[in-house]
Write a protein that binds this DNA or RNA. Structure first.
Lengths: 333, 333
DNA sequence: AACAAGCTTGTAAGCGCTTACATAAAATGG
DNA sequence: CCATTTTATGTAAGCGCTTACAAGCTTGTT
């Protein structure tokens, strides 16, 4: 692997000059630029990014923490962030935190130790205080899908309460009165917010919430099945089921079918997130669009603007409002 | 950010000693180790991975190239590779090549410039020769889902021809004689191999292949829909459709339903890959399991063994044989 | 022709670590 | 108790770059 030294020798110029043509910033005469470029090409020279980073204190890479590397939701997030950043010559270093406090912290430490220029975090397990101190630290940090008071400017989040509200509202508008709800794990803020919205919609419509109509799942498909079974036992009059994400909605659909219920004629189902596969389901899932891609894009733009001084045309916005996506699993009672 | 120098000062020892306790390799007395560790804790010292890499010529990170950051197939791959490597203290740097020759090369150059200790590539667009020269280069490289003669030892691949064969065989065994096929883009080796297997199965059963029964798709859902429509026009007697991946199978199912055909009573469908959502589909998709996770695991183990000298218990294997997963979209004619 | 002003290039000091080598201290043996 | 080996620590030279600063060249101007 050729080094800058060999290039400088081959081109008959100093190290500094080679560095200059590499970075294209300082002024170099056409003739020497050409000489250097030829030498680089001849040697197949490839700058050592590690050495560059050490010397310049810039890595041109931003760290991205997600909970998992698989799954539509995170796939969409990673994909969007990478696209925006790559378009501007920056790179993404991705790590997974697996919704575990220790592992999230480790992942963040890793990103910091790699001297990422900025961090984009979808952190679910670490505390607000930890994140606050992180934001107060030296490396710029933004949070996705999390709102923490005092550091609102570093947060990009969707209004989950409203999301839960509109999901249930859509169901109520179809005349349903007996509505089940499969929530996510309630220690998660997004899950409890969505539930709160659900309850508000019920209340507003004069429907009393019943404990038997609620099942606390874990956002995975299987708990949607469980939830479906559990609720239909305790709350057999149910005509509609709202699920806190699409995975669980899919599980619920499977369980409903196994129980001989037709969707949507006998049971309406609404999901949340609008991940890609919700369109593949049969019937196509009515769901609440969670603008994860828009958030990822915003976060990336924030970083470009604040860290690399690359302004984008679109203004930065922090709060995203979810919208209902009506498809085929919701029908009038 | 404290440096090793400040730690050495605080602990009253030399740089070298601090480095030694950090790396835990050389011998350091209990007393000084304690002093250093205390100093580190007090200063909140965090080693600079960039500087470590430059000095040691080791990054402890392996590069992973995938085609996209979203999608079940790549999600599974990234997730598995990360898990195996992280368990052994190594990190993954992920990049996307977007099935484009230039972008794949750029992504690989990026990984090399970051001085990854090894590369795991799911490269689809670059040539065999390019990959061969890469393998002959200095940084260890393994290929996933690609077999290139002469460098078999660096390849982990599934027998796509057999996969195509067993998919079609399964259909034939159910008595079908009029079988459509939606292939992937035929410039891709896996797509053409699967088609080859399909043709072999037909031939073996004495069924003549008809051009009208074939549609060349692009592996995306929409082309499954197109394929379904196109084939049922030109080949209306079709009773079963084999698709070269699950996404297209899902699209085909949608199109079939829109055309009023019931699955599987009027039309059997078989997919390929067995991605996660194939289980969520209704009816649940019969498909060919593509052991992407197993391949990812193997590739990671290969790297651990060859680059980091960490042996695993399971022997390295290069060829993976796909298996049919019978679910609900395949019925007797 | 002499000189200032502007360009272009070179020199050298780091960036924060690792590691071969040298040296000092402790342990061993006769 | 001294010579010899072993063990613990320090010294200093890099790793491959960037970037102040200095120095050398061109110009244009008078």
């Amino acid at each position: 692997m050729a080094t800058i030294y060999e290039v400088s020798e081959a081109a008959g110029v100093s190290l500094a000059t080679v560095s200059r043509v590499m970075n294209g910033n300082a002024k170099v005469s056409e003739r020497t630029r050409k000489k250097v470029e030829d030498a680089m090409a001849k040697l197949g020279y490839q700058p050592n990014a590690i050495a560059q980073s050490l010397a310049s204190n810039r890595t041109n890479s931003v760290g991205l923490l997600v909970s998992e590397l698989h799954g539509s939701y995170f796939g969409d997030l990673m994909s969007t962030v990478e696209q925006v950043l790559k378009k501007n010559g920056k790179h993404v270093v991705i790590t997974a935190g697996h919704v575990d406090e220790t592992r999230e912290k480790e992942a963040i430490e890793f990103l910091k130790s790699r001297r990422c220029d900025a961090l984009i975090l979808h952190a679910e397990a670490v505390s607000d205080d930890y994140l606050k101190s992180l934001v107060d630290g030296k490396v710029p940090v933004v949070l996705i899908n999390r709102k923490i008071d005092d550091i609102d400017d570093n947060c990009f989040f969707v209004d989950n309460e409203t999301g839960g509200y509109i999901a249930t509202k859509a169901v109520i508008e179809q005349g349903h009165k007996h509505i089940g709800y499969v929530s996510g794990p309630l220690f998660k803020k997004d899950a409890s917010d969505r539930l709160k919205g659900h309850k508000r919609a019920l209340e507003e419509a004069g429907i009393t919430f019943s404990e038997g109509a609620l099942f606390e799942g874990d956002y995975h498909e299987s708990s949607g099945q469980e939830g479906m079974q559990c609720i239909s036992e305790q709350f057999p009059q149910m005509t509609a089921l709202v699920c806190a994400n699409d995975e669980m909605a899919s599980g619920a659909m499977t369980a409903a079918r196994e129980a001989g219920k037709e969707i949507p004629s006998q049971l309406s189902i609404v999901g949340f997130d609008n991940v890609l596969f919700s369109r593949y389901l049969y019937p196509k899932l009515t769901t609440v669009d969670n603008p994860i891609q828009a958030m990822g894009e915003m976060a990336a733009h924030w970083v470009l603007e604040h860290v690399y001084d690359i302004k984008s045309q679109t203004p930065i916005k922090h709060l995203f409002v979810p919208q209902i996506v009506k498809r085929d699993t919701l029908a009038a009672v």
